[in-house]
Amino acid sequence: MPVRRGHVAPQNTFLDTIIRKFEGQSRKFIIANARVENCAVIYCNDGFCELCGYSRAEVMQRPCTCDFLHGPRTQRRAAAQIAQALLGAEERKVEIAFYRKDGSCFLCLVDVVPVKNEDGAVIMFILNFEVVMEKDMVGSPAHDTNHRGPPTSWLAPGRAKTFRLKLPALLALTARESSVRSGGAGGAGAPGAVVVDVDLTPAAPSSESLALDEVTAMDNHVAGLGPAEERRALVGPGSPPRSAPGQLPSPRAHSLNPDASGSSCSLARTRSRESCASVRRASSADDIEAMRAGVLPPPPRHASTGAMHPLRSGLLNSTSDSDLVRYRTISKIPQITLNFVDLKGDPFLASPTSDREIIAPKIKERTHNVTEKVTQVLSLGADVLPEYKLQAPRIHRWTILHYSPFKAVWDWLILLLVIYTAVFTPYSAAFLLKETEEGPPATECGYACQPLAVVDLIVDIMFIVDILINFRTTYVNANEEVVSHPGRIAVHYFKGWFLIDMVAAIPFDLLI
């Protein structure tokens, strides 16, 4: 008679799926529990143990900040960024110097990925580790590398530091407007667009060049630039800015003055950032001319202004700041037409079709709590990747769950009947059967004279019903998954307890 339990259901295979997918890609990662103190490590794979030199037993239950890997060259700011990422709910990448158990130093890129439950609360953290440099290539500990984003994938490793954006290309926007319009339909740009040429040739750093990471940081200074100062900065030398009595002219307006920039070969870094931020506020060169004239017309309804409409929906549905990093990277690809469009465009503009998908598509409701890094690593669709929660398995109709209350009560009843059979069957065979043979035949009273025979008949009927119930009862397979398919249940029961239950259900007393 089957006594099969499996009270692990309803099970959740999400954690096993993450481990299996990460292991298949030869990654070095740990999984931490966000619900406990210090976000203790609950799993670390073999790749991480080989990377740091510690065994799994030495890593388990330690804080996922990996303070046991810190050393003299470990930056405090990087460690603080990892700790801050564990307090938030967004994906974050941090470069930090770690030390192995043998004392060797290596520069590592740590990717902190939160995993949320159905309520939107962070319950786990996945920390992925990628070695960037070994100890002989690690720089000085005073050099802070965590304020910069990861290198873009479309640049060669040897040319990542030679990417320079020439400031004269930004200063000569109005001069290039006529050349853009003359391109017409034969050019790649839309009317009114501004073409910015980027020099990728390796050259020595000069005062006129600005690194790509500095251009990325310009967006942080746009908020500090007032509207009046932006307007004066875009007017140009024809209309000098008016300053109040006793007030000095704005240095932001002076930063885009061609006369002032041409007199000296070098520009201050602050002026460069502010000038680029001011130019980015204009949607095209037409807006710059309109600002000089004193009238700013409404933005025209053409394809170039609607190019950012799908980007707005993608940004609203993005799951991490990696989408913004990807957008900034692609927006700086050289030799393309940049349409400086305000994100607050007309909502009635139709979304044009684009061959290049900048932001990841909208994630469906079932995966809105899973970050983009987890979705990318697992390579699963929205119909396959579940949320991290207890999910009731989908069972067929008329199927009994093996952990249901009805099955528990039924098993206790069958257990009592088995005990009765084990006690009274030998007793009936030894004593009652002998008395029946010696006594007179009682054929007239039937079952009324033999109450134990009636009980034995009921017990046999219950055993037959138990066999039928076992054909529709779920079970737990070797992978700790609840199986509810009727065919698989029948095959599993035939290979197991079916023969024993059938022999126990045969009414031998009635056959004798």
Rank of each mutant, 00 (worst) to 15 (best):
V370E: 03
L155N: 15
V41R: 01
D286K: 05
A204Y: 01
R56L: 01
W154H: 10
A83W: 14
T371A: 14
D213M: 12
S250R: 12
P10A: 10
Q75H: 07
I288R: 11
E357M: 14
S313I: 07
P168A: 07
P141N: 14
P310H: 15
P334S: 09
E289L: 07
V325G: 14
S331N: 09
R328W: 08
T337L: 12
C64D: 01
V196C: 05
A78I: 01
A277H: 12
S331K: 14
T353M: 07
L109R: 09
T367G: 15
S275R: 11
G381I: 03
G103E: 14
A85F: 01
N257K: 15
I363M: 12
F163Q: 15
K362S: 08
S182L: 05
I333L: 12
G236V: 15
T367N: 07
P237R: 08
A89P: 08
P72H: 05
N128K: 10
A175E: 15
R271S: 10
S206E: 15
G6W: 08
R271I: 15
V113C: 12
E214L: 07
S250G: 10
R159C: 08
K135H: 13
H309D: 14
Q335E: 12
N369D: 07
R73Q: 13
L170W: 10
C39E: 01
L343H: 15
N12V: 12
L324K: 13
N317D: 15
F22T: 07
A9I: 13
G47W: 01
D102L: 01
S272A: 06
L107I: 15
I123F: 06
K21A: 07
L225C: 09
R281Y: 15
G88W: 13
P245G: 11
R159G: 10
F22G: 07
S55Y: 01
Q84S: 13
V341Q: 05
I330V: 12
T174C: 05
S179T: 09
R100Q: 01
A188K: 05
G262Q: 13
A285F: 14
P237T: 07
G103F: 06
T371Q: 07
S261C: 07
L171S: 07
L87I: 08
R242E: 07
S313F: 09
A57V: 15
D321I: 08
V138F: 05
G381K: 05
G149D: 10
G381C: 15
M60S: 01
G186K: 04
S272Q: 07
R269N: 11
D321Y: 09
N146I: 13
P361H: 09
M124N: 06
R159A: 14
A156K: 13
K373D: 06
R356H: 14
S304F: 08
E50L: 12
N45P: 01
V131C: 12
I82N: 04
E91I: 11
L311Q: 05
P114V: 01
T145Y: 15
Y327R: 07
N317R: 02
S266E: 14
P157L: 14
D219K: 15
P205W: 04
L167V: 09
T375D: 03
S255F: 06
A293K: 15
N257E: 08
R269G: 12
F163D: 09
F340Y: 14
V295P: 09
C44L: 01
E37C: 05
S351R: 06
G149V: 14
K116N: 14
K28F: 09
P168V: 01
V195G: 05
M133T: 14
L349P: 09
A57G: 14
F14N: 05
V131A: 15
F98H: 01
V279K: 15
I333P: 15
I19V: 08
A228L: 14
I358A: 07
E91D: 12
R181W: 05
M60E: 03
R35W: 08
V122M: 09
T74E: 01
P237G: 13
C108T: 11
F14S: 07
H368W: 07
R159V: 12
R77V: 15
V215Q: 08
E208I: 05
N38Y: 06
D342M: 01
I330Y: 14
G226V: 08
L256W: 12
S272E: 14
I359K: 11
F98Q: 01
V279Q: 09
D346E: 14
G120L: 14
V132G: 15
L69N: 01
Q81E: 13
T305A: 14
A9Q: 15
P10D: 14
V112A: 02
A285D: 14
G262E: 07
A350P: 11
D286I: 14
K166S: 15
L173A: 15
I82F: 14
L385Q: 07
G306W: 03
